[in-house]
Nucleic acid binder design. Structure first.
Lengths: 251, 251
DNA sequence: GCTCACAAACTTGTATACAAGCCTGTAAGC
DNA sequence: GCTTACAGGCTTGTATACAAGTTTGTGAGC
């Protein structure tokens, strides 16, 4: 594959995994082309690849958008992750010491990141745990699949997750690794199942996916009469379709 | 997505699943464009999508080729399928009667196809069993993943499988469904694991992947002196990179 | 003042032209 | 006769131009 195209693809995917791009963000071809110093052709190529990987969507003649999974799609993504990740743990017979060591270190890094509190690296690391697991116990193919799925669930969390429970997740990871160390892969699989279940249960799959979610909050106090010349944006939480900080700087 | 592009993508993928396109087959852009009545742009789009799905590869300025997985990639594909398919069976709590019925019917169709003996529909149906399973027990996302993986393993079988054991596979499927009917999903998962293991074990991962495999057979009897004006092709089994019956007719 | 129609700007969709590289067949040189 | 260099044809790689559609801003009409 063309290296430039691969770069764009990888840059966007890892930005999503790091929680740096919101679901619904518009990705203009020309803007990306300028940003990466390539022509639109390349950008389109990367976008189409990302589309088949399920992280981007095209709206005809309007542009490319980071996907905003529906509630249904969210359930599918979590079910799929459950299937694959528990399957992986139960398929494996024994865990090499080197793998255990690296997983333990990863959890340690998670803990430190939670204390320092950078929300981006935190979310990134929590997702990375699963990717590392697939990489260490599985193979490249499996890792790629898990990576794409993690990107999906990351976006889902950004859409539907009311409160972040990073600490709990990291605890879960720790327990899973402990079970692996004890040689009880069955237990590890069950813990993984519960862990993913917890994350999914922590979502509010009833509300978010419409772009008006943020607006409703503003309308409810009824301090709205049409005489407000400028929209108050004191709560600058970026909303889908109305984000004013896309990947590319506005000129 | 553009419907025309989707058509090309789907046509090629299902042709691969049906065993109608050999691994290593060259897919010329212009030829495909003529065949489907579209421009090269569309074909390239479809090809790039198929590339990200792992069923096609581009060789710079030479053309697109149906992948010929290496032995290593073959192992990865089978491991991944084992992980996912056993994971699926173990994640599911109970199997709805309707699903059981449709699976049973599928197995019945398999049996009939084996008796009548059309090799294409046979291979297609054996792969389809797994796809149907994912569809019935899982979700669309999972089905798509399994579909791509099945395409991979189909190609692998065509490369490395010395003898076809369709009957045995169909028996395995029957046993798996029986275990599901008995409500013993654990057993079903184990049977699935063994089934995939058997298919993998039935491969000869030492020989095939080089394009000269077919040639070596010819050279060994040493009935070759350079005085043979035309290469004998009595054994018209198509070889990778030297196939004379590509998807598109030669003009 | 409000609504609706229209136009301009902007963005993607698509084809095509040309550039660049690979493969093959041919001929010259040894 | 054998090797090697070269040229021609063929195929993909890439950019660009234009077509088609969407969004938004503006002005006329009610």
């Amino acid at each position: 594959m063309n290296p430039a195209t691969a770069n764009i693809e990888e840059a966007i995917l890892s930005a999503i995994l790091a929680g740096r791009i919101d679901p619904g963000t518009r990705l203009g071809e020309q803007k990306l082309a300028d940003l990466f110093g390539v022509s639109r052709t390349r950008v389109r190529e990367a976008m189409m690849r990302l589309e088949t990987r399920g992280v981007v969507q095209v709206s005809a003649r309007r542009g490319w958008y980071v996907v905003e999974p529906s509630a249904e799609e969210a359930r599918e993504a979590f079910q799929t992750r459950r299937v694959i990740e528990t399957g992986l743990l139960q398929t494996v017979r024994e865990v090499p010491p080197a793998v255990l060591a690296s997983l333990k270190e990863h959890v340690a890094i998670e803990r430190r990141a939670i204390e320092t509190g950078d929300v981006h690296s935190r979310a990134c690391l929590l997702g990375d745990f699963h990717i590392h697991l697939a990489d260490a116990l599985g193979n490249r193919l499996l890792t790629e699949i898990i990576r794409d799925l993690t990107a999906r669930t990351t976006l889902i969390s950004m859409l539907y997750q009311p409160t972040e429970k990073a600490e709990e997740s990291s605890h879960d990871h720790e327990d899973i690794v402990a079970a692996m160390e004890a040689g009880d892969l069955s237990l590890a699989a069950r813990l993984m199942d519960e862990h993913i279940g917890k994350v999914e249960a922590g979502l509010d799959l009833t509300a978010r996916p419409d772009p008006l979610a943020g607006l409703r909050e503003l309308l409810s106090p009824s301090t709205f009469a049409g005489n407000a010349p400028s929209v108050p944006h004191h709560h600058s939480h970026s909303h889908p379709h109305t984000n004013d900080h896309p990947l590319t700087k506005e000129d």
